[in-house]
Nucleic acid binder design. Structure first.
Lengths: 254, 254
DNA sequence: TTTTGTGAAGACGTTCACAGCC
DNA sequence: GGCTGTGAACGTCTTCACAAAA
């Protein structure tokens, strides 16, 4: 998503579809689990089940990376782990800063999935002087005043914003000015960024609203108000991959 | 996810495309902000800018809901807020339980976007007896042993899983058995659920990995081992509005 | 045989561009 | 004139189904 590719060079471009990129982490996680159990090879069917997708999709996805499987056998687990990691850029170290160390920021700092995937929490930053110096997940929180210096000294290119909505755009602007080119935004705001900067947003309230929409159609296909009839069975959107989308609402007028 | 489902497009008559449903919360948030500023009407162009999408998409989205605009004028803000809220099912109260009260669970419990949108935190549940009774966000944490009773007594249909990965499937099974039919999963696991149960997943580490992928192609490109060279220029991005494209992100306060 | 890799078909989503109404 | 609502064009993603390889 965020990155929209401009045109499609089509010929000989190594472009991997965005939908495929979004699933690679899923495959990687399933493969890592197999690797830990020392499973040597896996078929598209098995791996697809573990990742929660269907096998045709998985094979098509892998076909964009190259031909890493063996017909009649399946895929070599270790080899695939390496290839996907490389494709995602996880074979290198990515220093990340987390700005806004409230409950969410602390949860992110403590999240093990980061470190294990090539991400390194380079710094925790918060505007509250009372937090400065206090360790969270073993890392001392630094004050916002030092944001630019931290980004530059550590050559941080990925920033996570976990501040309240009101501070998000300002923090974003400072991160970008200091050199950050990828942002993961947890604040309920649409961020403006210059071209070349990637933003992904995670919004929990939006996810809940989407669930509510489907939940609403489950109970009672009748009743309800408004529109004409809309008979429809349960809408199964079970798809494994989540797709975050959306934003968060603010207040609701009664 | 989980099991490869039968794909039932369902949606025959009045079905709203999933992509549209995922954007409705975005529009709602932008509209709510306008409503608070007492703006009476808004054009598709203005609203689209506020929501971070383009106007053609917004108009098409609204066309699935009905014809709520006025040509030459725009949309009535209050009326649209109501229509979208109704469509999303936010005009009713949705009790929600959060299972797993670590930093993340606490962050969710404290999240204001919940209550303000028709969602009510009916209970906080954790397996740690040490937490039982302790208030988080003003709500006393209850023990996992009482999960079934809580779900049934409060007629909870939406559950949020914020436990470690290892406990997620088990918690999921219990929630479903007790009557929950929509689950928001924060644990890095693929959940198996029976038909009719909806699962959405939010995975922090996956979002970062996707960013890393794009970040990797920004900084010069050097051939890696393997295939022929694949020099590629920096991808300039198209859309003016920062828009995540496949997914939409959004929110959360610290 | 088993299972991959992939053209081709189809479903879905986005954008265009303009007719229609204010 | 301004702006919505929408058919049609276009692009992307998913699924099918089978030839090719081990």
């Amino acid at each position: 998503m965020a990155t929209g590719r401009t045109h499609r060079p089509a010929t000989r471009s190594r472009g991997i579809p965005e939908a495929t990129v979004a699933r690679l982490p899923l495959y990687l996680r399933a493969l890592t689990a197999l690797s830990e159990r020392s499973v040597p090879t896996v078929s598209s069917e098995e791996l697809a089940a573990a990742a929660g997708v269907n096998s045709a999709k998985l094979r098509k996805d892998f076909s964009y990376l190259g031909s890493y499987g063996t017909r009649g056998v399946g895929y070599d687990v270790e080899y695939l782990v390496y290839q996907i990691s490389r494709e995602l850029g996880l074979t290198q170290d990515w220093p990340v800063v987390i700005v806004g160390i409230g409950n969410l920021g602390a949860a992110l700092a403590n999240y093990g999935g980061f470190a294990s995937r090539g991400f390194r929490v380079a710094a925790l930053i918060d505007a509250d002087p009372g937090l400065t110096g206090k360790p969270v997940a073993g890392i001392p929180v630094q004050h916002t005043d030092d944001l630019e210096k931290i980004i530059k000294d550590d050559r941080v290119s990925i920033g996570v914003i976990a501040t309240p909505a009101g501070a998000a755009q300002q923090v974003c602007d400072r991160l970008v000015a200091a050199g950050v080119t990828s942002i993961l935004n947890f604040a309920p705001t649409v961020l403006s960024v210059p071209d070349g900067v990637d933003v992904r947003k995670v919004d929990l309230s939006i996810e809940l609203q989407i669930l509510a929409f489907h939940e609403q159609r489950k109970s009672g296909e009748e009743s309800a108000a408004g529109d004409g009839g809309k008979a429809a069975a349960v809408t199964p959107r079970d798809d494994a991959d989540q797709g975050p989308d959306g934003d968060v609402p603010a207040v609701m007028p009664a």
